[in-house]
Simulated scan of single mutants.
Amino acid sequence: MAVKSRRTLLLASGALLAVAAVVVPVVAGAASADPASANQPRIVGGDKASLSDHPYAVYLTDGGGNQFCGAVIVSSTAVATAAHCAKAVAKQEMHVVAGREDKRTDEGDVLSVSKIWISKGYSDPTQGDDVAVLTVRGQLDYRPAKLPDSGDAAAYSAGTQATVLGWGRVADGGARSDYLRSAQVPVVSDSDCRSDYSMYDQKTMVCAGYEKGGVDACQGDSGGPLVVGDTLIGIVSFGDGCGKAGKPGVYTRVSAYVDDIQAQAKSRIF
């Protein structure tokens, strides 16, 4: 099974900058000029989405302005993303792009990153703890996503309809999306996900997708949000291909990290 993170590999000055994960996350892909984007997933089987409905959806770019992952606003000064995205590009080269629905425009805000927190248990996506919080320089004047209660089980019940958002590939190995896309996917039971992925850890992961496939996150979508309403229940982490039958997307279970995210997302005091 070729399990890959859903982040795009970026090449800069001939050096490999990014993703060495074994799983494919489902976030929007990087800019079409990026030759390594083929390894990054995008929303498969979804539709064009609006930031007026999901103002907390943002994406990350490298020093060349290439989109390589997604993220989600959790406070006026911070975004949450996947740990494998936070480790993909040096802090001084990373930027958060907010309020830009179409990547071809210059709308919204581009903010540099002043601090990166990565879950101390992270090693690679398939081992869990695939979560990070980026503190930005400046203000994110957009409505943040809500965080679930740490003990919230209802949003993770099998069959719950959730929405995944990103600018990644629209097909496995396909081109990247220029604009934000979304797809509806049902939460998968822990027992079913464990049968699909032997490394599945129900304490730190959650799966979403259809048994028949066809709808999923893809390369470039890593780090992006999985929401129920406006509540963030998952962060795109990895998968086996994009939209394959019997291979749902695997997401970081946000409820397991609420305290850490809130601690890192607190507004700075000057």
Rank of each mutant, 00 (worst) to 15 (best):
M1H: 09
K4Q: 12
L10I: 15
L16E: 08
L17N: 07
A20E: 08
V22L: 13
P25D: 09
V26I: 14
V27W: 03
V27H: 06
G29T: 07
A30P: 01
A36P: 00
A36E: 05
N39L: 04
N39S: 15
D53R: 11
P55I: 10
V58E: 05
S76C: 11
S76N: 10
T77N: 15
A80C: 14
A80T: 15
T81W: 01
T81P: 01
C85M: 06
K87Y: 06
A90S: 14
A90T: 05
Q92K: 13
T105W: 08
G108L: 00
S112I: 01
S119N: 06
K120T: 14
Y122M: 03
D129S: 07
V131K: 14
V133N: 08
T135N: 09
G138F: 03
Q139H: 03
L140T: 06
P144M: 04
P148V: 00
S150Q: 13
D152W: 01
D152V: 01
A153P: 00
Y156P: 01
S157W: 04
T160S: 06
T163E: 09
L165M: 14
G166S: 11
W167H: 04
V170E: 14
G174L: 13
D178A: 11
R181P: 02
A183C: 12
A183M: 12
Q184E: 11
P186A: 00
S189A: 07
Q202K: 13
T204E: 07
V206T: 06
V206A: 12
V215A: 09
D221Q: 15
V228R: 10
I233M: 01
G239W: 04
D240V: 07
G246D: 11
P248G: 10
V250C: 10
V254P: 00
D259F: 00
A263W: 05
F270M: 01
